[in-house]
Computed example of a mutant assay.
Amino acid sequence: MNEGVKTIIFPVKDLDGAKRLLAVVAGGEPYMDEPYYVGFKIAGQDVGLDPNAHDKGLTHPTPYWHVDDIRARYQELLDAGAESVQDVRDVGDGKLVASVRDADGNILGLIQPAS
């Protein structure tokens, strides 16, 4: 099952500066504020700031599709011609993420929520 894009992650170099600006746009403080990730909920959309994203190959804002079987969907994308950017990995408490690059260089992310 695909629940659509529910998360967008921005790679940032200045986490504090980006957090201040996004707090203005969001109209409030983040729900998660850690040195490795700052997350805001805006009208049901999860918007994240990741200071380590550049090291993971993410150079632009990346949409993340929420899926129920990340490994199958990731392999289907690779089989369809996508290039792996980040293999499936657990980012904590069973939440899995992965990302691929299409032929035009766009990065597509996948998230499987913890079960």
Rank of each mutant, 00 (worst) to 15 (best):
M1W: 03
N2H: 07
N2L: 12
E3L: 14
E3H: 15
T7S: 05
T7G: 00
T7M: 13
I8F: 14
I9E: 14
I9C: 12
F10V: 09
P11D: 13
V12G: 11
K13H: 13
L15C: 09
L15K: 11
G17W: 09
K19C: 10
L21M: 10
L22A: 02
V24W: 03
V25I: 15
V25Y: 02
V25H: 01
G27S: 05
G28H: 08
G28S: 05
G28M: 08
G28Y: 04
E29A: 15
E29S: 12
E29V: 07
P30K: 03
P30N: 08
P30S: 04
Y31N: 05
Y31C: 02
M32Q: 12
D33W: 04
E34F: 04
P35G: 10
Y36R: 09
Y36L: 03
Y37Q: 02
V38G: 01
G39C: 04
F40Y: 14
F40G: 00
K41N: 12
K41L: 09
A43W: 00
A43Q: 09
G44Y: 05
G44A: 01
Q45H: 08
V47I: 15
V47E: 00
V47W: 06
G48W: 01
L49Y: 07
D50Y: 06
D50E: 11
D50I: 00
D50S: 14
D50T: 00
D50K: 02
P51I: 13
P51Y: 10
A53V: 10
A53Y: 09
A53P: 08
H54E: 14
D55V: 00
K56Q: 13
G57S: 08
G57K: 07
G57W: 07
G57Q: 08
L58R: 01
T59E: 10
H60G: 00
T62Y: 07
T62M: 14
P63E: 11
P63I: 14
Y64Q: 03
W65G: 00
W65E: 13
W65A: 12
D68T: 15
D68M: 07
D69E: 14
D69C: 06
I70W: 02
A72S: 15
R73C: 04
Y74C: 05
Y74D: 06
Q75A: 14
Q75N: 13
Q75M: 06
L77C: 08
L77F: 13
L78R: 07
L78C: 08
D79L: 01
A80R: 10
G81I: 03
A82K: 01
E83D: 12
E83Q: 15
S84N: 04
Q86C: 03
Q86W: 00
R89D: 02
R89Y: 02
V91H: 05
V91A: 02
V91L: 07
G92Y: 09
G92R: 04
G92T: 07
K95W: 04
K95C: 06
L96E: 09
V97W: 00
V97D: 01
V97L: 15
A98T: 04
A98D: 02
A98F: 06
S99N: 08
S99M: 03
S99A: 15
V100H: 02
V100C: 07
D102N: 13
D104M: 11
D104Q: 13
G105P: 05
G105Y: 13
N106V: 06
N106K: 01
N106M: 12
N106Q: 09
N106Y: 14
I107T: 15
I107M: 05
I107E: 08
L108S: 01
L108W: 15
L108V: 15
G109W: 00
G109Q: 05
Q112A: 00
A114H: 11
S115T: 10
